[in-house]
C-alpha cells in the first residue's frame, strides 16, 4: 500500500506492507536510525517519536496509521542548526550513557515540556515513566529536563558539536 506523511518537515511517499511498523518504516525505509527499538511490548519507550505533536511508541504504531500525519523524530529535534534545549540539557547534566534510550527519552521529555514548560521533579518522573533507561538511574535525566526548562533558548548547534 502507498502511504504519505511528513517526516521532520519533509513529505515522503512509499509503498509498504500494511503490517509494517512505524519504527521499521523510519529506520529501514527512511534510514532514520536515531529512533531505536528496544522491546516488543511498548514498555521501554526507546522508539518514541511525535505524531502530530503527541508522543507515540513507534513499535506499536503501523506505518499505515501515520499516513497523512506529521511525524517528528530525534533527527528533527535540531531546528535551523540549533539544538533543542532538551538535547543540550542531556549533555550538560550527563543524562545519557550508552545513548540507546536517549532519543526516545528526549522525545518524551520534549513532549512533556511542550505541555508543561516548568515541571516539578515528580512531574518529570511521571512524564518519563513510560521510558526505561538501564544506565543513568534517572536522576541525571531529571536534572537534564530541568536544565532544558531553565534554558528555553537553546545553544547554537555548532557549540554542541564541539562539546
Amino acid at each position: 500500500m502507498q502511504i504519505t506523511m511528513r517526516v521532520n518537515g519533509d513529505e515522503v511517499t512509499r509503498d509498504v506492507e500494511p503490517r509494517l511498523l512505524l519504527v521499521h518504516f523510519l529506520r529501514d525505509h527512511l534510514g532514520l536510525t536515531g529512533t531505536h527499538w528496544g522491546c516488543d511490548t511498548s514498555n521501554c519507550g526507546a522508539c518514541v517519536v511525535h505524531m502530530d505533536g503527541e508522543p507515540v511508541k513507534s513499535c506499536t504504531v503501523l506505518a499505515a496509521m501515520a499516513d497523512g500525519r506529521e511525524v517528528r523524530t530525534v533527527e528533527g529535534m535540531i531546528t535551523n542548526g540549533v539544538l533543542d534545549p532538551v538535547q543540550q540539557g542531556f549533555m550538560e547534566e550527563h543524562g545519557l550513557q550508552c545513548g540507546f534510550c536517549t532519543p526516545g527519552m528526549m522525545m518524551a521529555a520534549r513532549a512533556l515540556l511542550d505541555r508543561n514548560p516548568h515541571p516539578t521533579d515528580a512531574e518529570i518522573r511521571e512524564g518519563l515513566s513510560g521510558q526505561l533507561c538501564r544506565c543513568t538511574g534517572y536522576a541525571t535525566i531529571v536534572r537534564s529536563v530541568h536544565w532544558a526548562a531553565d534554558h528555553p533558548a537553546a545553544a547554537p548547534a555548532a557549540a554542541g558539536a564541539e562539546s
Binding site: 534510514g31 523524530t73 539544538l83 549533555m91 545519557l96 545513548g99 554542541g160
Partner: peptide, 21 residues
C-alpha cells in the same frame, strides 16, 4: 568534563548494530 561521545548520541547519530546496513 562533558562527554566527547554525547554530541552524536543526542542527535540520534550513534551507530549501533541494527543501524548498520
Amino acid at each position: 568534563l562533558l562527554r566527547k561521545e554525547d554530541p552524536r548520541f543526542i542527535r540520534g547519530k550513534g551507530n549501533y548494530i541494527d543501524d548498520i546496513n
